[in-house]
Design a protein around this nucleic acid. Structure first.
Lengths: 200, 200, 200, 200
DNA sequence: GATGAATGAGTGTTCATTCAT
DNA sequence: TATGAATGAACACTCATTCAT
């Protein structure tokens, strides 16, 4: 792994532990084993390190969107199993990805001064999941898979618990991914049982 | 208003905008119109300012707990209206209180290094609402008001959307309280319609 | 005891522990139980407190000089016992006086910036004892009590060990006055045995 | 001379004039001609500067111990000249070394709060000289060079005047090394004449 | 006699950054 | 590629002192 990559790795880890501002260039260099001035050969400034991480995050997240769209394209026809599988995939392959998890922590932690980070957080963890889910549920209702209801309210009912559980996981020191996963699965199953049309 | 109070007010505002660490004593003094050294007449150090705000937050929050317990004691007997009223009161009289709102923003923003603040956030916005709601729903199910279900999952289904909407409100610059309120009411009503026993 | 006296007492104790500069007005007030501004009713400024202590020190020290002169006026005629008694008196009634001891510590500790304190220290613990002893020994030699020798060298041989022992006592935490006293008595006896005329 | 060395030099000079606490980083930088932040490239903090000086002091002092042990190994056989030469060497090559002298002044001056410095002072200027001299005299008495006497008392009689003269030299502004040297030589000669065995 | 409130000057220290090598 | 050396701007905090009450 080259130095640039090592810097990114160290920065990701430190930013996600202490926050972007609280983690200093010194900290990063100590971890990588280079001198502070060397960082500036690889990055224009501290912010550029964060930007590089951010780019990677966006790329990964957009990859996910593609995947999610595909995965849910087949949902309409479907059983409880495939419904649950989609939620599970979102959590296990996206949210619980080491990089995504770490960057998400940075976003959560660093909601202060920084409008850019705030926007990113809002977009990927507050807005997009809801609009995506909204569209999907609208489809599922049309298809008669789910009971008729306000799509947005339904989307929130579906996503908010995931969001809540994720926050709790990230902010609880020593929390295990198992708990998060189990609670999320409980939620997904409960949701399906509650809202599927044929249940009545 | 005396100087001490002015300092607290300025600090609350600045901490909630930029975060505790990013907001400097200088910033606070500039806002209050005193010299930096004067702060130290009123507070032992920067942290003591935060502590004073925190104490106030805890006091208010504990006051709320008492109120919520009373309010929900009468719920068992009840109609949709009173069910919705409790949710509304929680949001309007607690979450949307200016002080609580500002302090909550501090807690959200400052989840980095600071174990104490992290614990406070976890307690008041992640854990307690769920345990409280859990107990309440367990009662409501016994009384036959709500359909039988796993209490914790139900509690999350009830609270997570509130939590989500609040975060969105706090992190969206220029967001109005009206939107938050409307979405929350939609959620509460949807929840009641979905889970009340007699609905079946 | 009135407040002024309490301030002096607290200052003496703190100055002698931490030094004049390192001990703050705050420290003193905390000890006395008054507010910092109150000090300025009793003293013009911090230095004035030290000055008051200094005045007291000089008074006591000058009282000693009178006593010492009287005590040694009768020495000429004398025995080992009375010779030893004078040294003993100097140590027990002067050097080991609580106030003198504390002030001496201040002088020792605070030999930095402060020319005035340095002068005081030099005068009372370096110069005067030697000139005094010098004169006395010159007399004792004339009278045939002590062997002929260079008075100043003799004075140093007599006083330097006292000075050394005193420093050691003051700078050794937990040192007891007993050790100082015993070592000093050994020294005085040894000195007498070595230099008295009739010993040969 | 590189910057690090210049900082040490400036610090040594300032610390020895005003004391460690009273001399500020700003003072040092002004003297060296660098900005305050630059100091922290070379030293972790203010204390580290003192520590570096201290290390150098200990190294020099321990070098002296080796030298002194060798020098006095040959004393037993010996004449007045060699006895005097050892004392002279101790003063001229150790005590009057510019660095040692300056650091000693720091130690003398800074006997307040600082237990570490107090311990250093005690060790090198109060305790070690006495224990060393004690052992040496014990040997010289065995060999029949010096008259029988209590070793410690003798050691104090030998060392205390040196200690006294050194203090006087350091605390007397404008004092010349010549005076110190002459007085010390008088003392050494007087000591030899008084205590050598064959003198009787 | 005492104090609440304020202040100016100063302290040691951290940080992101620059630039010649 | 990397670093040794430096720096300006900021930071939290301390201290002796003042003054109206």
């Amino acid at each position: 792994m080259d130095t640039r990559e090592k810097i990114l790795e160290a920065a990701l880890s430190l930013f996600s532990k202490k926050g972007y501002h609280a983690a200093s260039i010194r900290d990063i260099c100590r971890k990588v084993g280079i001198k502070e001035s060397s960082v500036y050969y690889h990055f224009a400034n501290k912010r550029a390190i964060l930007d590089a991480l951010q780019a990677r995050f966006i790329q990964k997240s957009e990859g996910l969107m593609v995947f999610m769209r595909q995965a849910s394209a087949q949902i309409a026809s479907i059983s409880k199993e495939s419904f649950l599988a989609v939620g599970d995939a979102y959590i296990q392959q996206y949210l619980l990805d080491d990089f995504i998890l770490a960057f998400l922590r940075i976003l959560m932690i660093e909601q202060g001064d920084d409008e850019a980070l705030r926007a990113l957080y809002r977009e990927w963890f507050l807005e997009r999941p809801i609009t995506f889910q909204s569209q999907l549920f609208s489809l599922l209702i049309e298809e008669g898979v789910l009971r008729a209801a306000d799509c947005r309210t339904l989307a929130i009912a579906y996503y908010a618990p995931v969001f809540y559980l994720l926050q709790r996981y990230l902010l609880t020191p020593g929390a295990g991914q198992d708990d998060l996963l189990r609670d999320a699965q409980l939620h997904f199953a409960h949701f399906w049982n509650t809202y599927q049309e044929r249940a009545t």
